[in-house]
């Protein structure tokens, strides 16, 4: 199979959340999101209720994907950083490893230089977690005795999702 599912366990998630929270505080930013390249939100910190996080995640992924396409067109491997400057708020988007995107929203109480500096440090830490998650997924793919919690899904479960 070409795909490996992204499976995140509690302890890994906790560490990711800690890194994101620290980044948000240390960079004096409003919100920090960690999104996966397919548009799904992984973790967030800050005033997340002020933003439609699901739409933000999918649009960010679309934006990164389109920019990736542009990079390849001009012969670059990828652009690792996107920056959008607004009147009040700014958006700093950076790629973490192969599958993560870090989104930092900040206003005048921070600066681009500070955000860049803090993001750099956090990216390295996040990368380590992603590597761990991927390593585990690969190991499990080779194991036949790994029991998925979904091995017992029935037709009735699926019917119930659709209210039948």
């Amino acid at each position: 199979m070409a795909k490996l599912d992204l499976v995140m366990f509690e302890e890994e998630y906790k560490v990711l959340q800690e890194i994101i929270t620290r980044l948000q505080t240390e960079s004096s930013s409003k919100v920090v999101f960690l999104v996966d390249k397919n548009g799904q939100q992984i973790a967030a910190s800050g005033d997340v209720r002020s933003i439609d996080a699901t739409s933000l995640a999918s649009l960010t992924a679309g934006n990164v994907a389109a920019t990736d396409g542009l990079a390849k067109l001009i012969g670059e491997k990828e652009f690792t950083l996107l920056f959008h400057e607004g009147e009040k708020d700014n958006l700093h988007i950076s790629i973490v490893g192969k599958r993560g995107i870090l989104v930092v929203i900040f206003d005048q109480s921070s600066s681009l230089a500070l955000v860049r500096l803090r993001v750099k440090k956090s990216s390295r830490e996040l990368q380590e977690i992603f590597d761990k998650v991927e390593q585990r997924a690969q190991n499990q793919a080779g194991e036949t005795n790994f029991e998925s919690p979904f091995s017992e899904i029935t037709d009735e479960d699926i019917d119930r999702l659709f209210g039948d």
């Binding site: 795909k3 490996l4 599912d5 992204l6 499976v7 995140m8 366990f9 509690e10 998630y13 906790k14 996966d36 397919n38 799904q40 992984i42 979904f150």
Partner: peptide, 13 residues
Amino acid sequence: MTFINYASREINC
């Protein structure tokens, strides 16, 4: 690629 989050007990497809 399904995203299975055991911490928030969510599956995203």
